[in-house]
Design a protein around this nucleic acid. Structure first.
Lengths: 343, 343
DNA sequence: ATTGGCCATGTAAAGGTTTACATCGGTGAG
DNA sequence: CTCACCGATGTAAACCTTTACATGGCCAAT
């Protein structure tokens, strides 16, 4: 019963009085086994507490039933809910999900590459636009892979994300509708494609509204709280301030709000601030943050579904799935004010 | 070179003109192989790009080189840094780390149990006081395991955490020193042992200060932001209010601050609030939160070290490792005020 | 010169599973 | 009644490693 060594298929076969082949078939292709035999086998399994040795199975099959999800930082508030979508979809197809995180260190990425190369995972979900494996990576050696949020630079890897341009466009259009003309964009990035797309939406919106380029301010940033705060500091060095801060993500927006708060300004009376992502915190802040909701669970679900198709069919059904971003209007946006000029 | 099927040990052996046994030895026990041969082998490995098939290796060895970390919620702000400690320690001993999360659903836990039972992980790190596998779990069947934060209920599993009682004591002593006497404890829980220990620290501190039990208010809570906000709502229904809210964790404290803020109170002028954990957000809030720092990376490191010892020696060197919690004084605590009574 | 021992290497089995192929019994058509 | 076929089951090989044991060569001691 509670033996020291786990039961093998042979133990089951002996008890069920069949061959190990029949046991294997009873488990994986039950339709090929007579009803009576199937019953005997399942009883034997119950008695022994048998579970398939995944090592042996994967060795024989040449593939595992695990999907590796690699993210630069699992602490990212965006990550958790995506994972739920990923896992649900995977499990309903008999796959398990394992998580790796690289902290942007190529060294860590290489560990996972080794993991992949030794066939311990059937597929890969990547949470970063950059292959986290350093340069020597042969993409050819990667298992079927799908990106999330951003296309993967090395190309050839389909991805699932939100339409960043459209999302940014919705934000900038809201700000314009409130009467803002001087809108700063905080957090442009050359390394994160999603961020530069959000900037594209920003530019497109201002173009459409006829706001001249000289009135635009674009700030580099890495999407951290600190980068948002820094941007505020630096903007106050300049002569002209924007009336609204359109931030590349919620973290940046939090930083901006902290920076403005530290200088004694009130949001949204003195300045409007917007984010992107709708992290859980966004609704709890004061003021609560107007932002773009990422359909996280849906993104996870689609990404995994895409990967599973790739796994079975070999060819990606499509190379890019963009979901619709929704604007979430809260309390961090109001009509522009010039009161701070009077000071 | 970039063949469709990955190179096996046999390919390496052929190129190096030795037997597969020698290749295996050259890799794992190089001292048993002549220098010249070792060189030939490593050249052959370079040529073929060989990496050992972990499936086959684990099958043969009967154990894998992966450690499974199971947490109820990887979005927990406490989790990320612990993981860093865990991973560094594991990697430096040749182990890899994989993460699972259960979302408190036993169903999910069972998936991981299957993973463990099929020998796909050599050891287990548990982030919850409750075995996440439902009732039918035979603890006997679990691989060597270590708990983090809390002892695991089923017993027999060593754990690493912070001295919750002492930490809570430090907080309550600070509040007492500021002159508070009516201190509410928000977030007691029967299911989370760490939480009830923090309450023990609270009680011990008040006992030592001679604060009578009738002046104490203890609120149940599950440690979420929402639970903190709820506690405030309910406390305002009562006739006597505390002057300080000592919260079981930072999330609860955030909820309390939101609740108090919504009623127009200022912290720390009107009320003092404290947390526990020092999540990253704690320093960014306004006011910044006085709390207890968890030495997260150290906890992770110790937990993994303990597990590795268990893996090699078989017996746990000790059953409980408690690290020292540090008080982090910020701006959410001040002397008590009675101004709200006048309203 | 013989022998014993040691070092480097090879041979082969084992680990648990899946599956192509073989076998066997039974059923239906001729 | 015979034969062909089909469905259910068994046999055995293969997946890739690791390692106990066997082998063989060489040196040192007798």
């Amino acid at each position: 019963m509670s033996n020291s060594t786990p039961a093998t298929i042979e133990d089951v076969a002996r008890i069920a009085e069949v061959s190990i082949a029949t046991v294997s078939r009873a488990i994986h292709t039950p339709e090929k086994v007579a009803n009576s035999t199937r019953l005997k086998v399942s009883q034997a399994i119950a008695i022994t507490g048998y579970t398939t040795n995944a090592m042996a199975r994967s060795l024989r099959l040449g593939r595992s039933n695990m999907i590796l999800v690699v993210a630069p930082d699992i602490g990212d508030p965006n990550f958790s809910n995506i994972l739920v979508g990923l896992e649900n979809e995977a499990r309903s197809h008999g796959y398990g999900v394992l998580i790796g995180h690289t902290q942007n260190e190529p060294q860590r990425g290489l560990e996972y590459l080794k993991f992949l190369n030794s066939n311990q995972a059937a597929g890969l979900i990547l949470f970063t636009g950059i292959l986290p494996f350093g340069h020597q990576t042969m993409t050819a050696r990667l298992p079927p892979s799908v990106g999330v949020f951003e296309p993967v630079f090395n190309g050839g890897i389909p991805y699932v994300g939100v339409d960043d341009i459209e999302g940014a466009r919705k934000v900038v259009d809201l700000l314009l509708a409130e009467g803002h003309r001087k809108i700063a964009f905080i957090g442009d990035s050359r390394t994160r494609l999603a961020y530069s797309r959000r900037r594209q939406g920003y530019e497109a919106g201002l173009d459409a509204a006829g706001v001249p380029a000289v009135q635009r301010v674009v700030f580099e940033g890495d999407g951290t709280i600190e980068s948002g705060r820094l941007a505020v500091e630096q903007l106050f060095m300049r002569d002209t301030l924007p009336t609204a801060f359109m931030c590349v993500n919620d973290q940046t927006a939090i930083g901006v709000m902290i920076g403005l708060g530290a200088r004694g300004y009130d949001i949204p009376r003195d300045f409007s601030v917007t984010g992107f992502d709708d992290v859980p915190q966004a609704s709890f802040m004061s003021p609560s943050l107007t932002t773009i909701r990422q359909p996280r669970t849906a993104i996870g679900k689609h990404a995994m579904a895409l990967l599973l198709e790739l796994l079975t069919d070999g060819h990606p059904p499509e190379t890019e799935i963009l979901l619709r971003p929704d604007l979430v209007v809260r309390n961090s946006v109001a009509a522009p004010s010039r009161q701070w000029i009077k000071r």
